[in-house]
Design a protein around this nucleic acid. Structure first.
Length: 512
RNA sequence: GGCCCUAUCGUCUAACGGUUAGGACAUCGCCUUCUCAAGGCGGUAAUCUGAGUUCGAUUCUCAGUAGGGUCACCA
């Protein structure tokens, strides 16, 4: 049988990294087995619909290289792939369920349900449907229908039985006592099915073989099983279902990704200048691990090696440090040409095309204020003007910047003369008294060198610097530090000599 | 609270009854070095607790504890 997996986000919000993870695993399983990966638009909740989110989510899953074989945009044999365009299809499903006794019409008003819930809450009972419409006589039903009373459709959960299934992700055999399961609403009073019916019926029609989803769906799984049963699907013909643990945000211990934290939005890390290959690689390991503990995978390698045996049960924490390590690793493994190209691509494709609000929300967390962000974005437009100069600058920061965003900050001094230099920093403590003397001696040295910096030699320059150290009776390292602070504005910098060469003699002299 | 799930270094994990409990990130130390990195070498660090099964439990069972998910005409 052909493996078919699906990713089915609802267009009610912007996807987070959890969506990327599910998509990645679905994609990998399908591709590994020469199967199909399907995108389905689960838009049955029209009230919460947020315009643009479907397009946003599709764009970004695609950006990560996870292309679907069938979907709302590309079509396919089971089109349409948008649920609100399939309401007729669901109608035949729930009519079948009602007629064979697997579901029933419920004429209870929302008001009655709210009141019921309130009473149950106050008396500390379970909040659940009391089954009032479960056993309506055909006469009563006909009467209500004749009066055009609105109704919902509820699944009719059988009494005193077991509902069970095997979870293919956690490898658990899970059993529910059916008396614990509520009669979920599967069709709303507006005639549109809820997720439970729509998704399960679509999965059958679209011949989905694996349902991967977050663990928040686990507790409604018995309802889904009952829907399959009611539709006459034999257990062995059902799609296999598996639930992934939630990704936790260490910033809020024990809590999953905050919907408000935009750095976890699917494009957040990309905007912050992380490589998609690195993000994908880290995400792979957030719920799955191979037996040999290998950690570095390209997408292609992951597809080959991914298996259901390695899926994890417990909730992983998002480790920003490890993400950084992956990104640093991938950044360093690029050639300088590739790195430069990716850097320019980041600026042109992501940084300058994203709204300022969104960039601020994603970036401000890094101890940078909005003005600084604005300044750096302006700088980013400037740095891509001359590719070869940029390349020589990036050569100096590639191995020391975690992200492109950091790299941009590290090359800022090439473009902007540092202001408000703090000369009292601890790195300059031992030469504090002779700062002026040292500066003028460095100035002298620089003046004596060729105006064509490409003719400079490291030996000549370093000898000069060490001579100043001797003359002022200080350590050579301190002399270098004075120059460094003058030129870049702080105690950290890329290799000094190479930086000076790029900056040019005149500019260097003006900064001392 | 009911139901369900989870529990190995700080973090992600390996060990499918017998290992000096392994790896990676982080952290610490040393080397390299004009700073910061990167790189090399080394160190600290874990089986939640209590019973049981067994010659032997990280591993199997039960209980406790802690954490998570869910209890909508949302997905």
């Amino acid at each position: 049988m052909t493996i078919r997996t699906r990713i089915a986000p609802s267009p009610t919000g912007y996807g987070h990294l959890g969506l990327l993870r599910t998509a990645l695993y679905c994609y990998a399983l399908a591709k590994k087995n020469n199967g199909q990966f399907i995108w389905r638009n689960e838009d049955t909740d029209q009230e919460r619909f947020v315009p643009g989110t479907l397009e946003f989510n599709m764009k970004w899953i695609k950006e990560f290289g996870l292309n679907w074989d069938e979907g709302p945009d590309v079509g396919g044999p089971y089109a349409p792939y948008t649920q609100t365009e399939r309401t007729d299809i669901y109608k035949e499903a729930y009519e079948k369920l009602i007629s064979n006794g697997s579901a029933y019409r419920c004429f209870c008003t929302k008001e009655r349900l709210d009141e019921l819930r309130q009473i149950q809450t106050m008396s500390k009972q379970q909040t659940r449907y009391d089954g009032l419409c479960r056993n309506l006589t055909q006469e009563e039903i006909d009467k209500n229908l004749a009066e055009n009373k609105p109704f919902t459709v509820r699944i009719k959960v059988p009494k005193d039985t077991k509902i069970e299934f095997d979870d293919i992700i956690t490898h658990n055999h899970i059993v529910w006592n059916s008396n614990e399961v509520d009669d979920y609403i599967i069709v709303k009073s507006n005639g549109i099915p809820t997720y439970h019916l729509a998704a399960m019926y679509d999965d059958i029609i679209m011949k989905i073989t694996y349902i991967f989803r977050g663990t928040e769906w686990l507790s409604s799984t018995p309802v889904h099983i009952l829907i399959f049963d009611g539709l006459g699907i034999k257990p062995e013909d059902r799609p296999l279902i598996g639930h992934f643990p939630v990704i936790l945000d260490p910033a809020t211990p024990g809590k999953k990704f905050s919907k408000r934290n935009n750095s976890f939005r699917i494009n957040g890390l990309v905007i912050r200048g992380y490589l998609k290959s690195a993000i994908l690689n880290y995400i792979m390991l957030l719920g799955w691990a191979p037996k040999d503990n290998r950690e570095l995978f390209t997408l292609e390698e992951f597809i080959q090696i991914f298996d259901l045996a390695g899926t994890q049960k417990s909730n992983p924490n998002w480790d920003a440090k490890k993400m950084d390590w992956f990104n640093g690793h991938y950044s360093r493994s690029l050639t300088l040409d590739q790195y430069t190209e990716e850097f320019i691509n980041w600026i042109e494709k992501y940084l300058t095309t994203t709204s300022t609000e969104e960039i601020n929300e994603v970036l401000i967390s890094e101890n940078i204020d909005a003005d600084k962000v604005k300044k750096l974005i302006n700088l980013s437009k400037k740095v891509i003007a001359d590719k070869s100069i940029l390349k020589s600058q990036l050569a100096l920061v590639q191995e020391r910047a975690i992200s492109f965003w950091e790299a941009l900050q590290q090359i800022e001094f090439f473009y902007n003369k540092p202001d408000n230099i703090d000369w009292s920093i601890k790195q300059l403590k031992s030469v504090q008294e002779q700062l002026q003397i040292i500066k003028s001696k460095i100035s002298e040295l620089m003046s004596s060198m060729d105006s064509d910096t490409s003719k400079w030699t490291h030996e000549e320059w370093e000898a000069g610097m060490r001579k100043i150290a001797e003359e002022t009776n200080s350590k050579a390292g301190d002399i270098f530090m004075v120059l460094r602070v003058a030129v870049v504005g702080g105690p950290f910098s890329p290799p000094l000599f190479e930086s000076l060469q790029i900056l040019g003699k005149e500019e260097v002299l003006s900064r001392i």
